Computed example of a mutant assay.
Amino acid sequence: MPEPLTEASVAELMPELRAVMREAASIARPYFRQGQQTTARVWSKAGGSPVTEADVAVDTFLKIRLSEIVPRAAWLSEETADDPARLGRDLVWIVDPIDGTRAFLSGHPDWSIAVALLAKGEPVIGFVHAPALGVAYEAIRGQGAFRDGERIAVDPRDALRTSRITGPKPMLDRLTRGAGPDSDFVRIDRIPSLALRLVRVAEGSVDVGMISSDARDWDLAAADLVLREAGGAVCSLTGEAAVYNRADPVHGELVALPRALRDPVIAAWQA
């Protein structure tokens, strides 16, 4: 029987995983042109979502390399056909080779590469790299969250009134109405990559990130761990934590926030 992952064994994986993430970024970066259309070939998936040859190249590279590093881990990725065998596995890689593909193909820098390793359904390693911005976030469960090697934490505020909020306009409008006439929110332009939306809450540059229904595990799992380790949470708008590696990896409406703002946000949403 394979040995379970321990804190020590997870830590031992990190140098090689960092190298893999850097190489994945180097594969994607040449296709990206700031402020211009990508040089990559683009086509539409079933349902109309765009995919580029960069998505596929990064996905193929990560599947090979991550499967070499943890051979017994199953696989769930946006760009790979789902294998239901993952549901019976303790370890699962959750991968989005390019989160924010529309941003990537249009020249907007807010796209990322997101990789999480789940153990018994909970993220234990999370990486979110933003190659166009030159920043990298990572977390190991129980060991804190980091941006480019520096520890990060959510903003310590516990009052919702002047929070910096971002996300889909209908959700922001509802939150604003529920917060009442004394609210003085700062609205931040919507962040195309969901993973980056979450890690910006983790680093304290955003306080509340709203997430519309239909996000997938690969959009969330890696950044969720970074946010948890920074003192925040991803939860439904009734307060339940996000659950990963279900048969259908699709989520309803969610919010990313510091734990201290959880109750005020839910109260405003339900008002």
Rank of each mutant, 00 (worst) to 15 (best):
P2A: 10
E3R: 10
L5H: 01
L5S: 05
T6V: 09
E12R: 14
V20F: 02
V20A: 11
E23F: 12
A24V: 11
A25W: 04
A28R: 05
R29M: 09
P30I: 10
F32Q: 04
R33Q: 13
G35M: 10
Q36F: 10
Q37Y: 03
T38N: 08
T39P: 02
R41G: 14
W43M: 00
S44D: 11
K45T: 15
A46C: 02
A46Y: 00
G47A: 08
V51W: 01
V51R: 08
E53M: 11
D55F: 03
A57D: 03
A57V: 08
V58K: 00
D59A: 15
D59K: 00
D59P: 03
L62V: 09
K63F: 08
I64T: 14
L66V: 08
S67R: 15
R72N: 10
A73Y: 06
E78T: 07
A81Q: 11
A81G: 08
P84T: 12
D90N: 09
V92S: 09
I94D: 08
I98N: 07
G100W: 05
A103F: 06
S106C: 10
H108C: 10
D110K: 02
W111V: 04
A114L: 01
A116W: 03
A116N: 06
A119L: 07
G126A: 13
F127S: 07
V128P: 02
H129P: 00
G134C: 11
G134D: 10
V135D: 06
V135I: 15
A139C: 09
R141F: 06
G142L: 04
Q143E: 15
G144S: 07
R147M: 13
G149W: 03
I152S: 10
A153C: 06
R161E: 15
S163D: 02
I165P: 09
I165D: 05
P168Q: 14
P168Y: 12
P170V: 10
G178H: 07
P181E: 13
D182R: 14
S183L: 02
D184N: 14
D184G: 13
F185E: 08
V186F: 00
I188Y: 06
R190I: 13
I191T: 12
L194Q: 10
L194A: 13
L196S: 10
L198T: 01
V199T: 13
V201R: 03
V201M: 09
G204F: 03
S205C: 07
S205T: 15
V206S: 01
V208N: 07
V208L: 11
I211G: 05
S212E: 15
S213H: 12
S213I: 00
D214Y: 12
A215D: 07
D219V: 00
A221F: 04
A221V: 10
D224F: 01
V226W: 06
L227K: 04
L227A: 07
R228G: 01
G231S: 09
G231Y: 01
C235I: 15
L237G: 05
T238F: 01
T238Q: 11
T238E: 14
T238K: 07
G239V: 06
A241W: 00
A242I: 12
V243K: 07
R246Q: 14
H251Y: 06
E253G: 12
E253T: 15
L254R: 10
L254W: 09
L257I: 14
L257E: 01
L257Y: 02
R259W: 02
A260P: 07
L261D: 03
D263I: 00
A268M: 11
A268I: 15
W269S: 03
A271H: 12
A271D: 09
